[in-house]
Amino acid sequence: MANIAAQRIQREFREVIKSEEVAKCHIKLELKNDEYTELKGEIAGPPDTPYDGGVFQLDIIIPETYPFNPPKVKFITKIWHPNISSVTGAICLDILKDQWAAAMTLRTVLLSLQALLSAAEPDDPQDAVVARQYKEQQSVFRQTAKHWTYIYAKGPHREAELEAKVSQLRGMGFEEHKARVALSTCDWNIQRATDHLIS
């Protein structure tokens, strides 16, 4: 790896470890190898959002050309958000693409992702299904996002009514996550979700 990339990540890593946000448990960063090329990030769901109380893990890959090109970041924890793929965890955020600047750091990236959880951009979606629900059925979206946060990110709101519907489809022999995705996609209408799973 180029000298500058590894050296900068070492410094950034030490900076994040000492930062105020880490002390308050808002963000976390761990090394996955000694070469400083792969890291694991963690962000807390922001207050007053459906993600509140959840913990979201991120996969961070540092390119050899860092900091002249952005780090590659995706969600490992499954999440229901218009700008994050519910399938792959890929993120649509301008600073991770063409709006990257060499003065940004892993700390500012993690804080920007936290801000994205507070303020979605449904008109620039990564997941069109989630974005449609966000725009057309805001309360269903919030409930779904809370339920996903409970199931995948250790969130506090169980959303028992939604969980009962997932159990009902499981009883019909469908796999749990597939059933949850189908129900979430079909605004929790059991009949439509069943058709979706069969087709």
Binding site: N3, I4, Q7, R8, E12, P67, A102, A103, T105
Partner: peptide, 14 residues
């Protein structure tokens, strides 16, 4: 330096 994060009293990593 905001790019390499090295001190200005030192030089760039190259």
């Amino acid at each position: 330096c905001g790019i390499c994060r090295m001190s200005f009293e030192a030089c760039c990593p190259d």
